[in-house]
Amino acid sequence: MDHLDELEAQSIYLLREAYHSFSNLCMPWSMGKDSNVLIWLSKKAFCGKIPYPLLHIDTTYEFPEMLEFREWAQKEYDLELIVKINEDARAGRGSYTTSVGYETHDPVTVTHELKTVALQQVMAERKFDALITGIRRDEDSTRAKERYFSPRNAEFEWDYKDQPPEFWNQFTTALEPGEHIRVQPLLDWAEVDIWRYIEREQIPIPTMYFARPGEDGKLYRFRSLGCWPITKPIPSEATDIPAIVAELMVTKTSERAGRAQDHHERNAMQKLRAKGFM
């Protein structure tokens, strides 16, 4: 077994444990590269049939190309897909006095309302007891201390100061009232592992990850994908996966540097994540 085989084996083990442990789990899906690797691993874990629904939190600021990919993948993989929009926040009704959007609000507020609150709403509606997320330790220092099975309380808060022990592939699977568990099968993967696996397995991904000319004629690609008003491409000539891998070997910038909500204020990720962001 090589390194990718080992990562794959552990992720499949975790997915099967999650499916056994929870009666009503669901897998958030952003259509990004990590998300698509999760779909692929789920297919492998369950011999071609994904036994839980996928959930897209649609902020209404999605790149059109991502929505096309969503439609294509839903058919291709035969997915049970839930699409959730925080309609109240967008329309400025219910508990919202004004419409929430990037045009009027800062990225941290918008991310919280349109992603985390939307997730809370759908969790309340569908009573999910576990979410399978695609986060990785190497993305961010707050994600580096995550567990494979990580409890969140009823307010979605993460008690990172006092996490339950987790070792020997034994996980927290029992819930206190109101809790749910975040299952994180990609925790051990690095960005470059994801790319090597996508290449090895020929996993379909949106083409926005590959370099193409921008308005100034120079080449750009997206390294990480989010809402279009706050996601910036990076200068890159990588038009295929080997070129992306080569680029990652020498880059000095972090993966999420193009994601404005992380950097809006100091410790923004810490604050977002403590309140329930993935």
Partner: peptide, 9 residues
């Protein structure tokens, strides 16, 4: 961020 993520490749 101060964690040397770029070295986790």
């Amino acid at each position: 961020k101060s964690l040397p993520t770029s070295d986790f490749r």
